[in-house]
Design a protein around this nucleic acid. Structure first.
Length: 271
DNA sequence: AATCGCGCCTGACGGC
DNA sequence: TGCCGTCAGGCGCGAT
């Protein structure tokens, strides 16, 4: 389940292998992802190069001179760079083959992912245009978040996971950031104090940055491996630890559901 | 505009 | 061993 740090790690790992390598073949074995892969994608991409690989939220954006390939990994999506001759495995849905006979291979068992083409300004794409700020930029700052939360009565955890508020904070990091900021996940958004909002902004940035740094250690063998997810290398305080003792105060962690998502917190440390 | 619940999908896991 | 139900979860979307 890639969160922003995994997507960023993926971007950094892919970059040297996909930029400025002419594409000679595109193989679509299964086009039924969240939305169908455009049928004419091979025709569009062949003989082009990706000139840039960027990220917006959890979307990877492969720029070409004629448009942008948009890739989302959903829950189970993985991309690897492998020799084009490598035998395919179950759920290997797409190969983008470069002229050096390596290919970008997309595998996605649950098919929540997406691969789309957009020939206009990608930032205006319907899936991107309404997204909130990137968490690691200065657009995500205490003044912005406080103003944004004031209009919202829903649980702070839901706001934090809402792409209109800030992108890239999924369930794992929402749980972790709220714990580390000492904020109860059910607290109504507009009741979180200025001070707590400031702390939350800072913590979100720290948690994500740490995770990206941890992911970086797996980059070395990116070509062969499906890099193990960065968050496993990060100490998790609450996620997946319901019923276990809090790492800070030893009190038993509470597990509940907020918006159909598993939520773990410490009722002593989080107010 | 905010908010809520639904559904897409497969693999892992527990119970019998 | 096998079958079946349940859970996991990003996130767009439609309804309110």
């Amino acid at each position: 389940m890639p969160e922003l740090p995994e997507v960023e790690t993926c971007r950094l790992g892919l970059q040297p292998h996909v930029i400025n390598h002419p594409i000679k073949q595109v193989i679509i074995r299964n086009s039924r992802l969240r939305w169908p892969i455009p049928i004419d994608l091979p025709k569009i991409l062949i003989n082009q190069c990706f000139t840039q690989l960027t990220r917006r939220g959890k979307y990877l954006l492969f720029t070409t001179p004629t448009g942008t390939l948009l890739l989302h990994l959903g829950m189970s999506g993985r991309v690897r760079i492998v020799p084009a001759m490598t035998p395919v495995s179950k759920h290997d849905h797409v190969d983008i083959v470069f002229d050096n006979d390596y290919c970008l291979r997309f595998n996605d068992s649950r098919r929540f992912g997406a691969m789309l083409w957009y020939s206009e300004d990608i930032q205006q794409h319907p899936l991107l245009v309404k997204l909130g700020p990137e968490p690691l930029t200065n657009d995500f700052n205490p003044a912005y978040l406080y103003a944004s939360l004031r209009r919202r009565k829903q649980a702070i955890k839901l706001s934090l996971m809402d792409n209109h508020v800030v992108v890239g904070v999924g369930n794992i990091y929402a749980n972790e950031a709220l714990f580390r900021a000492g904020i109860h996940p059910l607290k109504p958004s507009h009741k979180v104090t200025r001070v707590a909002v400031s702390r939350l902004v800072e913590i979100v940035k720290i948690v994500l940055t740490e995770a990206i740094a941890a992911g970086g250690t797996t980059l070395r063998d990116f070509i062969s491996a499906d890099g193990s997810p960065g968050y496993f290398q990060q100490t998790l305080y609450v996620y997946g630890r319901g019923g276990k003792p809090c790492r800070v105060c030893d009190n038993q962690l509470i597990e509940t559901r907020i918006g159909q998502r598993s939520t773990v917190f410490c009722e002593v440390c989080q107010k």
